[in-house]
Write a protein that binds this DNA or RNA. Sequence first.
DNA 1: CGCCTCAACTTGTACGTACATGTTATTCTA
DNA 2: TAGAATAACATGTACGTACAAGTTGAGGCG
Lengths: 359, 359
Amino acid sequence: MKKTPDIPKCEMVKRYVRHLLKDDIIAYGEKLPSEHDLTEKFQVSRQTVRQAFGELTVEGLIYKEQGKGTFSNYKKGAKGSQIVAVVTTYLSGFVFPGIISGIEQVLSDEGYMMLLSNTNNIKEREAQYLKSVLEHNVVGMIIEPTASSGPNVNSRLFSVIREKGIKTVFINACYDDFDSAYVLLNDKKGGYTATEYLLQLGHTRIAGIFKTDDKQGVNRMQGFTDAFRTYGADGDQRLIGEYDTANMYDYPYMFAQSLLRSKNRPTAFFCYNDQCALMVIQAIHDQGLSVPEDISVVGYDDSISPLNSEVKLTTIRHPKQEMGVQAARFMVDMLEGRAEKPQYTHEPELIVRKSCRNI
Amino acid sequence: MKKTPDIPKCEMVKRYVRHLLKDDIIAYGEKLPSEHDLTEKFQVSRQTVRQAFGELTVEGLIYKEQGKGTFSNYKKGAKGSQIVAVVTTYLSGFVFPGIISGIEQVLSDEGYMMLLSNTNNIKEREAQYLKSVLEHNVVGMIIEPTASSGPNVNSRLFSVIREKGIKTVFINACYDDFDSAYVLLNDKKGGYTATEYLLQLGHTRIAGIFKTDDKQGVNRMQGFTDAFRTYGADGDQRLIGEYDTANMYDYPYMFAQSLLRSKNRPTAFFCYNDQCALMVIQAIHDQGLSVPEDISVVGYDDSISPLNSEVKLTTIRHPKQEMGVQAARFMVDMLEGRAEKPQYTHEPELIVRKSCRNI
DNA sequence: CGCCTCAACTTGTACGTACATGTTATTCTA
DNA sequence: TAGAATAACATGTACGTACAAGTTGAGGCG
């Protein structure tokens, strides 16, 4: 009486061989039973055994040498050839030296290789890379979701990834419909803290510019409006600007310019990130005004070295390196069975420099 | 009469299918002839066709759907799933934001993914990664050789890589016994230029500290001694220090300290790289001396921002970003058939700052 | 004793057959 | 005409056989 008659015989053989390898019955480099041995043991044809061996070879668990036999290619501690994929939205700019180098440090130390790719926040490229990852025998993925505030159009692909046993760690943002390990930054609180700071300085007409195709931007905007509500201040909807990946290089400047030319112009700007803040500062300067004397500006991410820039920008610290290190640690812990689904949210921190004044 | 009767039939089928795909007879996503069709066309058994299809599936060229058929998975322009491996010695330090980001820019633009790993200058890790790369269906490798001044113990692995048709571009250094595309820096000339500069400033007792397990260091030392010979100056052998990866964090300091304490101390130091120069400057300061008043120092690589450091270090510029970009362009050109074996050597450039004076 | 041959064993290639499973389009039925 | 049944066709799994090719060790020969 067979337990599960619907399991293919080929699958039975594969399971048996995996058991031999993973339970240390056959050590790395040692010889496996020959095809003929397994033919007799399982009472299957040699073709069936060959098929099983073939698939295990593709998986990299075993290798064959004609005339000699089939051998274990499975090392328990040796993750030397294992790949962790890292899929981010942007690599240039501030993320590269930060999060990525944090991830790299840990993975390199632990002997993993790192497969880098970036989506430029385009959903199709995310899909393309997810498929590639599935083809290339990757053991884990660290993902910064693409256009995370929109619907997760790639959820089917993520399901396949999960089914294949590939571990995932989300960073910066995560999809609502996919439960996974993550390392986030509390962007809502960051937006709140920055806005609170400006309100406490006496500003009331505070403009907010947010990139809202990422969840980060949506959360920062949420914190912005929450702060107004808490402090009982009136938030002027016309002072809030939203943009996305497509117009990220011109919108902040244009929006700031139009506000500055209006008769009741804002006295402060809270910007989605430092890059955005730089464009706003440019617009302020181009109007013949100065920071912080005329207008106060708060950025986000602390991605611009205060040494190099003219204006010492007050901003929210983004623990890039630490988050990268932690995401990679989470990944390694999961891969090596020390953790199930670790999750952590970092708390943001206001860095006061010299781009704001009280009024 | 058959042309080549020693080619397996299975191989014949594979070649035919490849031809169908690569010569655009069957476009991406279109259906291939069924197993039965090819059985008749080639007068082989279905098993043989199945074997060919199986191997092509592993290569990622085709995919099958039960009941529907077999389809092309080959896109001419779409290299989205193709991987270029990058094997460097160190990733932390100066290389990471430089060469790697240069490589990354190009590969990312061209739609390739990048597999990062670093050897920490350990030959065994190089071997380990080369093997992994062979297993993971990589189309190209950009390699900074490990311990390049020593014998190329991994030459057999490199041969296998070549046989598999994997393209290689060497960066910073290359092995003598392996002809390949490369992007180098003329380190001999760099060493010469730096030393010449010190000699022209009137220095005669110039110390040189070199990391000689890499070819870069050997070449820089060569340029150093060449300059002495050209200028007819006496090079004191006792002023030359050689170290390697194992003692890279203490040797420069110790060696400089011992020279500074000697009665006939040098008036200038030429250092293997800026990191080394920083340790030498530390040793000089610790002896109560200052740079450049008492001792002149020249570094190499221009890897330390002059904004952040106390001493504005005169150094040789290493076009990190440019070299990374070029290596990646070479790789893409080779992969897409626009170049055979491109090679280029960058010329170094002296950057005069404030760590040297004439005497 | 050293070398060579060969048998035994391993995987590789190739043929054949049969039936299962999934997809699609046609045909038949209500 | 809408829906169900079915035939035709695709790949998936599994059995069997035969011979080729590479490796190894035992035995025999000089």
